[in-house]
Amino acid sequence: MEILMAIVIGVLFMSATYLMLSKSLLRIIVGTGLLSHGAHLLLLTMGGLKKGAAPLLGEQASSYADPIPQALILTAIVISFGVTAFFLVLAYRTYQELGTDNTERLRGTEGND
């Protein structure tokens, strides 16, 4: 099971890298979404996918799934949600102000470099 997950996560990272290297700003943001999906799935997989009950003491099971990676993922999800929301609004503002979503054209001429 872990091997299957590793392959899927690898595909997610691959797609994310490909999308983040493209020119359109929205594709880049979709790429960051896939990247954080990959990272969260990897955290879950690395915690171990052995069988066990959901981590609720009411289940009365003999073994439970590891609760720590789940807490870590929950934290990482809300953080990446906040950052993505900010990033999307920033992309919207940039499109309004600068009139382009092409990253090739988001270049500076300020300063004498």
């Binding site: 990247l35 954080s36 990272a39 990897l42 955290l43 690395m46 870590l72 990446s80 990033f87």
Partner: peptide, 16 residues
């Protein structure tokens, strides 16, 4: 964002 995702991945590896 990219470096934070890599940080999460590195913590995942270290934890495993």
């Amino acid at each position: 964002v990219i470096s934070s995702a890599l940080f999460v991945v590195a913590v995942g590896y270290l934890y495993s």
